[in-house]
Nucleic acid binder design. Structure first.
Length: 288
DNA sequence: CCGGACTCCTGTGCGC
DNA sequence: TGCGCACAGGAGTCCG
């Protein structure tokens, strides 16, 4: 399940192929994965096929931007598309001549040409929790979609994080998962960073001391950076734009390890449900 | 307003 | 071996 590290790694692997490429043609196989950024982050998809220009046809890609788990592709016409991978989404770049092993659930396809080299950018999403937001400008995307979210988890300051956690009565894990608090953290990195900071996921966010929030901030940034360097976590579906899996799952201390020994104290890791999400932590290291 | 529950969707893996 | 069901979860929406 793509979270910030997976999307950041994806951005890095896409940049060489995309930036400077001209969008020759766009194919939409399902219009209901498309949304207008002007309508905000809602989930109601389009019923009718949009104009090619809204999906960057005949323009040149000049930049990729990421906020939290969302990735925007910006063109020289000013228009941008923002891809959200949801649970099972993939953005793949397939150079001309190469073959994509699975072509089912491909909802959107951009044919690209860059200094003679051709290839296809494909949005594939079996579960369709993801989507593609069309914006007339990056400013519109930022204003209508990104500004309603909290700061990006890699750039938020400890002070801002503390202020945000002070504001809510929920558990610290629920707060970390809320994209309005900070953007980019999902179930894996919430559990991993709480383990790193030795904080119990059920603790009420507002009751954490400044020192503990400071520790959580350090842990979160450290875990996210380390995961980006490993190419993210592949559990089942996630692959980068070239189809490569991430190796960070091998470094998970808690996620997916319920019943195993704690890598820090040797205690048994326990599994509970917090904020409707499977949560694994060490009862000995992460006391309430 | 806030927070918890429900919902969307498909592939996987388990138990019988 | 095969069937059916529970489960995985990002995030919008609904409701108390």
């Amino acid at each position: 399940m793509p979270e910030l590290p997976e999307v950041e790694h994806l951005k890095r692997t896409l940049e060489p192929a995309l930036v400077g490429a001209r969008v020759e043609r766009v194919h939409v196989y399902r219009t209901d994965v498309l949304r207008r950024a002007a309508d905000g982050p809602g989930r109601s998809g389009l019923k009718r096929r949009p104009s090619g220009a809204a999906l960057l046809q005949s323009s040149t890609i000049v930049d990729l931007k990421r906020h939290g788990k969302q990735l925007a592709i910006v063109s020289d016409s000013g228009a941008a598309v923002c891809v959200h991978l949801g649970m099972s989404g993939q953005l793949r770049y397939v150079p001309a001549g190469d073959v994509l092993t699975r072509t089912d659930h491909v909802h959107c396809q951009w044919s690209l040409k860059r200094s003679g080299a051709q290839g296809e950018l494909l949005f594939r999403d079996p579960r369709r929790f993801g989507g593609v937001w069309m914006a007339s400008s990056l400013a519109e995307l930022e204003e209508r979609c990104w500004s309603v979210m909290g700061p990006d988890a890699l750039t938020i300051s400890a002070a801002a994080m503390q202020a945000a956690l002070k504001r809510t009565q929920r558990s610290v894990k629920a707060a970390l998962l809320d994209q309005h608090v900070l953007a980019g953290v999902g179930n894996i990195y919430a559990d991993e960073s709480l383990f790193d900071a030795r904080i119990n996921p059920q603790v009420q966010a507002s009751t954490l001391s400044a020192a503990r929030v400071q520790r959580l901030h350090v842990a979160l940034v450290s875990v996210l950076r380390s995961a980006v360097d490993s190419g993210g976590s592949t559990l089942r579906d996630y692959v980068d734009s070239t189809g490569a899996k991430g190796s960070f799952a091998l470094k998970h201390n808690v996620y997916g390890r319920a019943g195993s020994e704690c890598t820090r104290c040797g205690g048994k890791l326990v599994q509970i449900v917090v904020a409707q999400r499977t949560t694994v932590y060490c009862a000995r290291c992460q006391k309430r």
